[in-house]
Design a protein around this nucleic acid. Structure first.
Length: 273
DNA sequence: AAAGACACCTGGGAGC
DNA sequence: TGCTCCCAGGTGTCTT
């Protein structure tokens, strides 16, 4: 499930193959994603990919006329088919979109659950989904003071607040679970009740976990052109995510699982207060 | 304004 | 082995 590190690694993986290339054609085999793929996306055809950026979990392919905005949802992945490496493989099941460059390099999008999105943001206009996003967790704007300000009237659990992209982007269930464990904060606590000192530690752990994860993913970049379609990132080394019922790595008590905002949450009742 | 529920979708695992 | 059931997950939108 792609969270910020996976999207960042994807960006780094595909950028060298796409930057400066001309888009010959965008082939949409399955337009029914989270939102229908807009016809206007074809405006990107015959333009140059100027740069590839990331905002939250969105990838932005910038052209002269606007931006192709890609979200991987929870099962989406991108890979590169380069003519000299793996040629022109026919698309397989769930490979919904090809972005074909004039030199025959293909950016191929696969998304079995179709929770992802391909959108078009015309130059000078702004998609509301992008406008509403909160701060980047790895930027200097993401501080304990910012969090305290955003959370001061929030009664929801701190874990849900961390996963709210209007507050801070890119943190999903995995990294929210992990960073709260590392900061030893109980995920159920009301967001407004977390002390500034705890928020400082939490912000620090979030940045640390995301940075480490990007570093690990960066070692597997070559996989973006592997013929088997491996998306180029692997399960990261996680402390407690997905380990309910196992022992806490710190105190060896049994890790508990609860539902917070319809999402399962693992935590250690002994270490996280 | 804030919080909770819900929808979207498919693969995979559990249980029978 | 094969069927059914349930769950996972991101996030916008609708309801309370």
């Amino acid at each position: 499930m792609p969270e910020l590190p996976e999207v960042e690694v994807t960006k780094m993986g595909i950028a060298p193959y796409l930057q400066g290339k001309s888009i010959r054609e965008i082939k949409v085999r399955q337009p029914k994603l989270r939102w229908p793929v807009p016809d206007l996306i074809h405006q990107a055809e015959h333009t140059i990919i100027l740069s590839i950026k990331r905002r939250g979990k969105y990838l932005l392919l910038e052209t002269e006329l606007g931006c192709i905005v890609i979200h991987l949802g929870m099962s989406g992945s991108l890979r590169i088919l380069a003519p000299e490496i793996n040629g022109q493989k026919p698309p397989e099941k769930h490979e919904h979109i090809d972005l074909i460059c004039s030199d025959n390099t293909i950016l191929r999008y696969k998304d079995p659950r179709r929770f992802g999105a391909w959108l078009w943001q015309e130059k000078g206009t702004y998609l509301s989904v992008l406008q509403k996003l909160g701060v980047e967790p790895l930027s200097d704007d993401f501080t304990s003071r910012y969090l305290r300000h955003k959370l001061q009237h929030k009664k929801i659990a701190i874990k849900q607040a961390l996963m709210d992209s209007h507050i801070v982007v890119g943190i999903g269930n995995i990294y929210a679970t992990e960073s709260l464990f590392l900061a030893r904060i109980d995920p159920r606590r009301p967001a407004s009740k977390i002390k500034l000192k705890e928020l400082t530690l939490l912000v620090d752990k979030i940045k640390q976990v995301l940075t480490n994860s990007i570093k690990q993913g960066g070692t597997t970049l070559k996989d973006f052109t592997h013929a088997d379609g491996h998306p180029g990132y692997f399960a990261q080394k996680l402390e407690i995510y997905g380990k309910a019922g196992e022992e806490c790595p710190l105190c060896h008590e049994i890790l508990q699982t609860i539902k917070l905002g319809q999402r399962s949450s693992v935590f250690c009742p002994h270490c996280q207060k």
